[in-house]
């Protein structure tokens, strides 16, 4: 008799646990879906790149290059460093690639500039402080990909 009561209680507890777990899973899935489909504004989807100008290119050349770069609709923002002879810019990576943008502008303007390429080693050893090899990062990015 006593044993039956225990078994009944265990079954109920197990059922309650499974129901709770199921509900939490549903809530989690809805939350992830909402977060993943939130409109991405501002810099959220922006990819950055930088071109380095040849020494012969003066500030006028940089301004012209920048103007031509902004003719591409996928380019959002840019910032020139006249002293260093560089131009950092942000663009929509879903529409184009940095190399395509750079090549296009170089061909169009004739202004000599090269796209800075970051090696995987450099990219793995600097800020922003997020370890993309961490388990947390892998799980969260994996879940995000599921809903994209």
């Amino acid at each position: 008799m006593q044993k039956n009561i225990w078994i009944t209680w265990l079954k109920r507890a197990g059922l309650a646990f499974l129901i709770t777990l199921g509900m939490l899973t549903v809530v989690l899935v809805i939350h992830i879906y909402q977060v993943s489909n939130r409109p991405r504004g501002g810099v959220d989807g922006w990819q950055m790149a930088r071109v380095n100008f040849e020494k012969s290119v003066d500030s006028t050349g940089i301004v012209l290059f920048r103007y031509a770069l902004h003719q591409h609709k996928s380019v959002y923002h840019s910032f020139p460093n006249m002293q260093a002879g560089t131009l950092a810019f942000a663009f929509d990576p879903t529409k184009t690639k940095a190399s395509e943008l750079c090549n296009s502008v170089v061909q169009k303007t004739g202004i000599q500039a090269t796209l800075l390429r970051i090696s995987s080693e450099e990219a793995a050893n600097a800020c922003p402080v997020i370890d993309q090899h961490s388990i947390t990062y892998r799980i969260s990015s994996g879940l995000q990909k599921l809903f994209r």
């Binding site: 922006w46 460093n81 990576p93 690639k97 970051i118 922003p128």
Partner: peptide, 25 residues
């Protein structure tokens, strides 16, 4: 990002991320 002197500290900003991932920016 436009400053070569700071590049070693912030290199991932200028590295392309694979499609679908949050950009380093």
């Amino acid at each position: 990002a436009a400053d070569p002197n700071l590049q070693p500290y912030f290199a991932p900003l200028l590295a392309e991320v694979t499609a679908g991932n949050t950009t380093n920016l």
